[in-house]
């Protein structure tokens, strides 16, 4: 009978606290990985669309359009984004060693590098001689870079969130799964960029 009393008490507590409950935080990382694998399939569908359309279209580049071209700013942009993966890894390691300030500095550097990349993408968009409606080359280019840019923005937003939370006392008492998950997301965004970069810039007709 005691167990049932306990149960109704915990039930009461549950109702009073508005349904808040502890959850196994380590599940977050597992679930997030599953989500990223699933999310990558959206990119796969876009990559396949791009590849198939490009292989089957006779006039891929409409007259007067040169398509996206590999230029120094893009290479710099790529280098910045890829090296930010290293920076975020160092930030994570700093947190593991309880060096909170170094973590914050490196974490913010990662976001800044991401922001630089985004600004670079916008700059490139403005300088191009084709728009979203310029044939399939325009549609696929802006879809791919835009969707990737959206992910970079989401990553920066989440990083800011984590930065604010790092000032909450006792935030890391029960591990730092949030930081690990966002770092994972950032690596994911980088890997996507590598594929995107190869498809858009290295694949010459």
């Amino acid at each position: 009978m005691e167990s049932s009393l306990d149960k109704s008490r915990s039930h009461q507590v549950y109702l009073e606290t508005g349904g808040k409950r502890e959850q196994d935080k380590s599940n977050v990382l597992f679930g997030f990985t599953v989500f990223l694998l699933s999310e990558s399939m959206v990119f796969v569908s876009f990559f396949l669309t791009y590849t198939i359309l490009r292989l089957t279209t006779i006039n891929w580049l409409p007259p007067g359009v040169s398509g996206p071209e590999l230029s120094t700013p893009i290479i710099i942009n790529t280098v910045v984004l890829l090296s930010s993966s290293v920076v975020i890894y160092l930030a994570e390691r700093a947190l593991k060693r309880h060096n909170l300030w170094l973590f914050r500095v490196l974490w913010l550097t990662t976001s800044a590098m991401g922001a630089y990349f985004l600004a670079g993408t916008l700059r490139e968009w403005r300088s191009l001689d084709f728009g979203l409606l310029t044939g399939l080359v325009g549609a696929t280019f802006y879809l791919l870079t835009g969707f990737h840019g959206l992910h970079v923005s989401a990553g920066i937003f989440l990083q800011m969130l984590m930065l604010v939370r790092s000032f909450v006392p006792g935030n890391y008492n029960r591990g730092h799964y949030g930081v690990t998950a966002i770092s994972l997301f950032w690596h994911f965004v980088d890997v996507i960029w590598v594929i995107l970069f190869s498809l858009l810039y290295l694949w010459r007709a």
């Binding site: 699933s38 796969v44 569908s45 876009f46 409606l133 549609a139 879809l143």
Partner: peptide, 23 residues
């Protein structure tokens, strides 16, 4: 595994319908 591909297709169809692309 499969649903995100439909989402991708729906996004592109939406672009075709609303923004005038031609996927």
């Amino acid at each position: 595994f499969c649903l995100p591909v439909l989402t991708g297709a729906a996004i592109m169809l939406f672009f075709d319908l609303s923004f005038g692309t031609n996927f």
